[in-house]
Design a protein around this nucleic acid. Sequence first.
DNA 1: GAGGATCCATGCGTGGATCCTG
DNA 2: CAGGATCCACGCATGGATCCTC
Lengths: 210, 210
Amino acid sequence: MERCRAVAGRSLGQLATQIGVEIPDDLRRAKGWVGQLVEAVLGADAASLAEPDFRTIGVEMKTVPLDFKGRPRESTYVCTVPLEQGIGETWATSWARRKLARVLWVPVEAERDLSLPERRLGTPFLWSPDPGQESILRTDWEELMEMVCLGQLESITARFGRALQIRPKAANARTMAAAIGPEGERILTNPRGFYLRPSFTRAILQQHFG
Amino acid sequence: MERCRAVAGRSLGQLATQIGVEIPDDLRRAKGWVGQLVEAVLGADAASLAEPDFRTIGVEMKTVPLDFKGRPRESTYVCTVPLEQGIGETWATSWARRKLARVLWVPVEAERDLSLPERRLGTPFLWSPDPGQESILRTDWEELMEMVCLGQLESITARFGRALQIRPKAANARTMAAAIGPEGERILTNPRGFYLRPSFTRAILQQHFG
DNA sequence: GAGGATCCATGCGTGGATCCTG
DNA sequence: CAGGATCCACGCATGGATCCTC
C-alpha cells in the first residue's frame, strides 16, 4: 500500500521511464501493456523483480481504464470459463471467486485523446466483495455455469449476468477448446472468459471514492 | 523416399548450409539440433516449409547417432509416459505404439571426435515392427504401465524392460508432474519418457542393412 | 454502448535428443 | 556403460486487457 501511494498521480510516461520500458505508440498491438507496466512498478509476480509476490498475500491486481468522468471504459477480465471441468465446482470453490476475493483496483486515465505517456494513475485501493456484491456474483456464476454444464454454452451471450458475463477470450475466433454439447457430447468451441460489467466496477469505485 | 536418397551421404555441414541454418559448436546446448536439421531438410512439420507433413502420411522420423562401427550410441526417445491417464489405456491404443508404428530411421555419424559439420547421414529407411518386435514392445509396455497404474512408478528404474525402458524426461530433476502414489493418492514426481534401448535399435539397423 | 473479436508476453508442456558421473 | 539428468525450440494455454463494429 505504500508503493500504491507512491504511484498515485504519476503518469504512465514517468513510470515507464522509471523502470526502463519502452512505451508503445498505442494499445492496439499491446493491449495488456498498462496492466503489465503497473504490475512491474508495484513489484508483482510478472515483473522479475525480487519483490513480494502478490499471490503470496492473496491479492489480485486489476487496472481499470477510466473516461473523463471517472467511469470505467471497459469490462474487466476475471478468468477463463471452465468449459469441461465445471461440473464438480461450486461458487465457493471456483476460480472466479478466488480471483475476486481480494482485488487491488488501480484506476488509470484512458480517454482516447489522451496520449499513453500522459495518462495518470489514480489512487489504488483494496476491495473485497461485500455481502450484496458477493450474492450477485454468486448468482450470476451459478446460472452461467449451470448452462455450461448442461451443454447450453452456445446459447450464452454477453447479455446474461447482472455483474458477471461470459464473452470470447482467445487469440481469434478460430481458436478452439473442448466443451460440453447439447447432448452431453464433447464439442469444440471458442474459449470463453468471465468478465465484470463496467456498471459493476463503477459501483465499486463509487463505493470507495464516494 | 526420393528426398531421403538425396540426403544419404551428405554431411551435416552441407545440409545446414543448404537450408541456411547456423551450426552450433557442439550439441551440449543444442541436443536436438541434428534431429531438427534433418526434419527441416526432409520437409517435416517442424520446418515451416510448404512440404508434405510427415504426420499426414503417418510417419515418425528419428535420427540415430552411430559410433564408428555403425552401432547406436544412444537410446531413442519415444514419448512421455502417461503418469495419470494410463489407466484406461492398452498397448493397442497407446501413444507409444502409434509413434512406433511407422518410423523413418535416419542414421547419423556421431563419433565424438568427428566435428558436427563433417558428420554424414546414412541412408534413411522406413521400418515397422515385425511380429516379434511388436510382441517385445507390447510386453515391456504392459509391464511398465501396470506398475505406473498401480502406483509403483517410484520403484521403476531404467533397468526394467527388454527393449522399451522408462527414464526421466524433463528440463531437470526439480520439474514435477502428477502421478499415482502407492496408496492410489496423487503424488508429484519427475516426468518420465519411454526410450528404446540401443540394443533394440541396433537390431533394427542390422535387420535392414544386413 | 457493448457484444463479439482480437493482440502481446510469458509460462509450461511436448518433441527434438545428448550429456555426464558413478 | 548406461542410468539418471539435462538442454533448446516451439506450440499452446493463460494472464494482461482493449479493439472494433454493429
